[in-house]
Design a protein around this nucleic acid. Structure first.
Lengths: 140, 140
DNA sequence: CAGAATCCACCAGGATACTG
DNA sequence: CAGTATCCTGGTGGATTCTG
């Protein structure tokens, strides 16, 4: 088993939270599940930029960190459903805030980020989360 | 100049925000500056886990993204002061929420994160942010 | 004191193929 | 459909040294 060689730094709340949300798709995954998209294949469709492997890895981490729960139906073909735990739900106001802040300042942000000479080109449509209305949220 | 070869994905607000806060010390840096710690040497003292170089790099990125402003006094020895821009300030509720969430669930989080077999050991005291009371915040 | 230049270890995440 | 194993690339951030 792989072991990380660089120690974590985690005594202020900021770093603890960062560790939980650390991963390219973690916030999007939590958001998707909160919006009722609970099956891996659906999530995969929702995030065309991500591969099955990466989603798998990050979902597992979220599960290990206690943010989501996994329900496996022992069938063929297999069926899996994820749901938020209570502590997972407690993250949603933050996710919403992140999402909203990005949307509010979209024009500005796209400009300054595009100005960044490091950024070669931008791919659009890697995430369809914004097409789901928040009103469709399901109650845990 | 280094150029990034992997395209960004940034059409949902979540990813825009993530790009801005992307960097090990970015939220902590914003928080520090908001709390009135504006000089590099002070910030360095506040975040003993980070090196001068990394702070320098991430401060520059925050500046390029328009979150902070840099004021240089042409003296010897040089003196530099950072401050939040208006849009930078607009991030503070989010930073506070991240910080608070981590603190609220500290016990749980430290447990599940430590359970993670990837984590070998944890360094404490890499960040002294929690020693500053929020009451000491300065107005932009 | 502030920061630029180098060098590099580490590891996150993408591609692909395979199993049940 | 869901998940794992393997391999590989690129880029973040740490160490160190040097300048003004």
């Amino acid at each position: 088993m792989y072991k990380r060689k660089i120690p974590l730094t985690m005594d202020c709340g900021l770093h603890l939270t960062k560790e939980v949300l650390n991963g390219k798709w973690k916030p999007a995954l939590l958001n998707a599940i909160a919006l009722g998209v609970r099956r891996p294949s659906e999530i995969l469709r929702l995030l065309p930029g991500a591969t099955r492997r990466v989603l798998s890895v990050q979902l597992k981490e979220l599960e290990e960190h206690g943010m989501i729960e996994k329900k496996t139906y022992p069938q063929l073909p297999p069926k899996v459903e994820y749901s938020l735990t209570e502590i997972g739900w407690s993250l949603m106001p933050i996710i919403d805030a992140l999402n909203q802040w990005g949307d509010t300042h979209r024009t500005f942000l796209e400009t300054v980020i595009r100005q960044d000479p490091k950024v070669v080109h931008i791919t659009k449509s890697a995430c369809q989360l914004q097409h789901l209305s928040v009103g469709e949220q399901q109650v845990g």
